[in-house]
Write a protein that binds this DNA or RNA. Structure first.
Lengths: 212, 212
DNA sequence: ATCTGTGAAGCACTTCACAGCG
DNA sequence: CGCTGTGAAGTGCTTCACAGAT
């Protein structure tokens, strides 16, 4: 069965709330309550989960631990993922030092940069290598995921090289609409785009007020 | 006319590519070429733009400058937006120092933190204030947008305070599904969620190979 | 000859509403 | 009686396909 991409995007949210509930010691939760916590309709949660099986008990709801384990397994969060970072400038450095990846099983194991002043530096216990060694290093010690934090002009080229080196998923911090072959996953992290779509609605408000 | 939210989310992308084309000195561009650069169908671009007017010339395409100006005006990018950052830890510091906001007209004018060791520090020419002064400062010097980079446990509370202080748009870096009242815009910047939805597809590949 | 703008068709996602189980 | 799981209905978004402008 082909599962709608939007469903896959919501599962990590569900998992996150279930983790919080588990920590609170809750054993059971209804789609109603999950929905309330997430701002999603209960029907949507039930439908989403139904793509993967029957996890609930009628009249009761879902066992928090059971559902959490199921989601973690479905999403592949029950294992470690290795990542290679390309671009260790200001942004890249912040990414290496970000404490949010490791507890979720995502580990940066290589860091590359093109700037000779940065190559050789140690960042958070990781030695920055020259980006020219990318293919060689990834052949020896492969990773599943690439993180791109290089300037826009070279981002597409870096992404192409990562893909050719066998990386099947890319987290792209560069402000470009990168193209990847079918079968390769890519996600954009782009706060400026987020801001620019919000201002549309802010503008509307100003206009409505001006029209009064 | 009510414009589909997905359309609004794509407009900043169009604007970005048009900026690049303008810099290359291109005068005219077709929906076909725009689509190619963005990985979007030409029909979608034409349909999206048609919500706002008729910007193209049949047989020719779109004038790059004219369309760019129109989009900037529609999105409200033809003005400055003031932002307040809450949370000046490692992540917050990286946000203040990020050079990508200013050239797009987004300026951080206040920074708040709760940690007395951080309050009073100067970061990128900005003095960090105590978060208890948030309401007071925003009443005196309002901002349109709030940026939240605080720990998950306090994020919802901070967002509520920002909204009560008149902020109509929030960029949320905290890993929670925050709730805001109708009419307030919110966008999540959450690399971990992005990673966790990609691993679903990576897992599929491993499984397919294992099944051989 | 080329490329836009747009109704209409098609597809994807969400919500409804209720049978059925605990 | 409460809450799940799910076909069916409803909604929203995308793509088609072509008339019409240059």
């Amino acid at each position: 069965m082909e599962i709608p991409p939007v469903v896959i995007e919501r599962l990590p949210l569900y998992a996150r709330v279930l983790e919080a509930l588990a920590q609170e010691g809750r054993e059971v939760v209804s789609s109603q309550e999950l929905g309330q916590r997430l701002g999603v309709t209960p029907a949507q949660i039930r439908k989403d989960l139904s793509y993967f099986g029957r996890f609930g008990k009628q009249g009761r709801g879902y066992n928090v631990q059971t559902l959490l384990s199921a989601l973690r397994q479905i999403l592949g969060l029950d294992r470690q993922w290795r990542m290679a970072l390309v671009g260790v400038g200001r942004l890249g450095r912040a990414i290496v030092q970000y404490e949010g990846f490791a507890p979720q099983g995502f580990r940066i194991v290589h860091a590359f940069d093109a700037d000779p002043r940065i190559v050789g530096q140690e960042v958070n216990g990781l030695t920055v290598r020259d980006v020219s060694e990318l293919e060689e290093v990834l052949a020896r010690e492969p990773v599943e995921i690439g993180i791109v934090a290089v300037p826009a002009v070279v981002a597409q080229e870096v992404i192409d090289r990562l893909v050719r080196a066998g990386v099947r998923a890319i987290l792209n911090y560069a402000p470009i609409a990168a193209r990847v072959p079918r079968g390769v996953q890519i996600r954009r992290v782009d706060p400026v785009l987020a801001l620019q779509s919000m201002t549309y609605y802010l503008r509307q408000v100003s206009n409505a007020q001006a029209a009064k």
